[in-house]
Amino acid sequence: MTEDIVAGTGERMPGIGTCAREAAGVEPFAAALERHGLSLVRGETTTLQVNTGYLCNLRCRHCHLEAGPGRAEVTSRKTMAAIVSFARRFPFRVIDITGGAPELVPDLPFLVEGLAPLAPRLMLRTNLSALRDAERQPLLALCVARRVVLVASFPSTNPSETDAQRGAGATEAGISVLKKLNAAGYGVEGTGLELDLVSNPVGAFLPVSQESAEREFRDDLRRKWGVTFNHLYTFANAPLGRFRTWLFRTGNYERYVKTLTESFNPSAVDGLMCRTLLSVSWDGYVYDCDFNLAVDRPTGGRKVHLSDIRELPVPGAPIATGDYCYACTAGSGFT
């Protein structure tokens, strides 16, 4: 069994190579698929996800990448050019820029400008607070001009819950930026500028119904702060990275993994993002999803740089899985 040392504590715990079933005695994810007569294989690849690195101004408790202020892994301009070239060669319908906090990557405008003409839908993930500084105003103006869809992480309309997950002052910073985005037209009916929110649970439990959460968020944000948005998405937290460390530290790991496995929904498998997505790491290597990227399980079992890819994965190709995949198939699933 491999071991990791929890940062700053000296405490040893099972390493990332140890799957959930070894820690919790649950059925392996691959076995659960087989028992239900299912296989997880690729369909048509329509989405390119670009992870611009692990630099972030926050240290969110639920982060599966352990992103934070001290991380130096960010996409270079050279790799950005390779990503643009790659997207020019293949007909992606959606391009999704994520991180870390992509807003902090120095050459992000270069990437946005290069990718915007290449897909009908270009998305940029934001933690909101990274857009707060005046120096990000040109980036916001570029997003408006290029009609970039903004996908903002906002865990809860309860300030104490949001601050617990993201750090003191996170709610105030997030609301300030949401108001700025509304003023620019984002999330406002009739503008065509889409602002979507993403909420992850703040503890070791599954998200509530997406439909009920969206109603609550819409009512609370409008009533408390006069903020509007387009859609809300709720996702379970993957037991990886900083969230995994927190689960071990608080004694919640086995209980949480058991909750995920007991909530396995076979109907969610067909709609999983990994079936239609190709994820590119900050340094240009290709994975089936951002969670496989986090544990360095590359597409096809070997690391391949996107500049060496001559064709997209064929439908029916297997997808690398781990027991953390239960987080994507719990309840309504991660689609």
Rank of each mutant, 00 (worst) to 15 (best):
E161G: 13
T162E: 13
T162N: 15
A164D: 15
R166E: 12
G167P: 13
A168R: 15
A170V: 14
T171V: 08
E172I: 07
S176H: 15
S176T: 15
S176R: 13
V177A: 06
V177W: 09
L178E: 04
L178G: 03
K180R: 12
K180E: 10
L181C: 10
N182S: 09
A183D: 14
A184N: 04
Y186V: 04
G187K: 12
V188E: 07
E189A: 15
T191K: 10
E194P: 00
D196T: 04
D196M: 02
L197P: 09
V198E: 12
V198M: 14
S199A: 15
N200S: 08
N200R: 05
N200M: 06
V202E: 05
G203N: 06
G203P: 08
A204K: 03
A204I: 06
F205P: 00
S209G: 09
Q210P: 09
E211G: 11
A213H: 01
A213Y: 03
E216K: 05
E216R: 14
F217Q: 01
R218C: 04
R218G: 04
R218P: 03
D219Y: 12
D219N: 14
R222L: 13
R222P: 03
R223T: 08
R223E: 14
K224V: 09
G226M: 05
V227F: 03
F229W: 07
N230T: 15
N230V: 04
L232G: 05
T234F: 10
F235D: 03
N237K: 02
A238G: 00
L240C: 01
L240E: 00
L240A: 00
G241D: 04
G241S: 01
